[in-house]
Design a protein around this nucleic acid. Structure first.
Lengths: 224, 224
DNA sequence: CCTGCGGTATTTGTATACAATACTCTTTGT
DNA sequence: ACAAAGAGTATTGTATACAAATACCGCAGG
């Protein structure tokens, strides 16, 4: 992460996700270069990457703006993620090895420990969760699938700051993971796919509910 | 297509697909710049795009090489395309409008004309086919789905040169499209998805059979 | 008040120079 | 003979200058 273009990518991305650069804001290369302390060259590269993440859009005349994510776009992203991660789980079940199974179990074990603490450790939860899903994707052994999911998977980072994980929701994730492991043990692709698809869609609805709550909240604020 | 980086992209891409740059060949920016008649800057941009197309891979130390596509990778790409285009067809069926339906019918009509000629016009066939699928993707109205499919859809260009379309195969495409239209008319998402998935998978097997044929052929040549 | 037109200011695209990094092939020591 | 080290070469990364394209703003005419 020491290359200037990587730093620019991370910097701009976090400015977008934090709301420091609001949806619709123009992203002029020179201004960003100054803010990131690098020249325009790496900024251009970062913008192209963010564009392929759909975090940035470009007009027909090549100007870049912060993309605005409607609630439908988020639904869209989750729907696709549900399909693709479902496929990944199926492939993983069909190709499962003992070593991979151990890694997956390990990840969910760490996840379980983190949520049983008096105050659940959300950072550890997220890390273990990421590893759990990454391990499955590795076993699925499809570079394409991995490439497609990469743009989808880290998407709702906004959500992390907005959504307060309830202990119940965390526990539910853990137990769905356990069921997934059971499907892997039996090399049952169809079962694994079904659980994974449901797992992602449940996460989506948790997000949508939380978002609706926030929307009402800010409406109330506006009314005051 | 007048921008230098677009020309570089097209040029390099076609060099790869034509085999002029064989799998595994190193892609040095300077050399490519010279071959394309532009400077390194647009070449770098083109390489990043080709990398996200998975036509180019980079080592951990940032050197670029022509990706080598195993038969499994191709299978992978088709499998994903089948899933995603299936989804697109389902969404399209659920959102179909009369205008869109007219466009889709128009495309398949042109396709039908092209293949009923004494000598089928493959160029027109391909153009109409592309438009048919593009129209469906438009109706599906999912930017993400469009973005993901974009990298998959134009993939097997190699195939076009290798595969001799039989009149029977062309006619089969046309009639599958007609069935898809029937599903659209009835707004039946599940039906549309099923047909589309089958449509893509049939294309895959046609490709795989042709490829197997070619492989045997070149084995024979090697033996001589 | 709105619309179209220039001219100016911004912004992006490309080329090039130089710096940093990685590769290669030879040399040297065990 | 083999491994490690190092110099020299090849390749990529970044900054910067200039060119081309585009947007903005004020003004004239309807």
């Amino acid at each position: 992460m020491s290359r200037a273009s990587d730093r620019a990518y991370e910097a701009i991305r976090s400015m977008i996700l934090s709301g420091e650069l609001p949806a619709g804001a123009q992203l002029a290369e020179e201004a960003l270069a100054e803010r990131c302390g690098v020249s325009r060259t790496p900024v251009r590269e970062a913008l192209r990457r963010l564009e392929s993440d759909l975090l940035v859009t470009r007009t027909d005349t090549q100007r870049s703006f912060v993309a605005d994510w409607s609630i439908d776009d988020v639904a869209d992203a989750f729907e696709l993620r549900a399909v693709l991660e479902g496929k990944a789980a199926r492939r993983a079940a069909e190709r499962m090895t003992d070593a991979a199974l151990a890694r997956i179990r390990g990840a969910n074990h760490r996840l379980g420990e983190a949520i049983r603490l008096p105050v659940p450790d959300v950072a550890v939860f997220l890390e273990a969760n990421r590893d759990f899903h990454a391990a499955i994707l590795d076993v699925a052994a499809s570079r394409r699938l991995a490439a497609l999911l990469a743009t989808l998977i880290e998407q709702p980072v906004v959500w992390r700051t907005a959504h307060h994980y309830s202990r119940e929701a965390l526990r539910r994730s853990w137990s769905e993971h356990e069921e997934l492991i059971a499907a892997f043990v039996r090399r049952d692709g169809a079962w694994a796919e079904a659980i994974m698809t449901g797992h992602i869609l449940r996460a989506y609805h948790a997000y949508a509910d939380a978002h609706r709550g926030l929307a009402e909240l800010s409406q109330k604020e506006a009314a005051e």
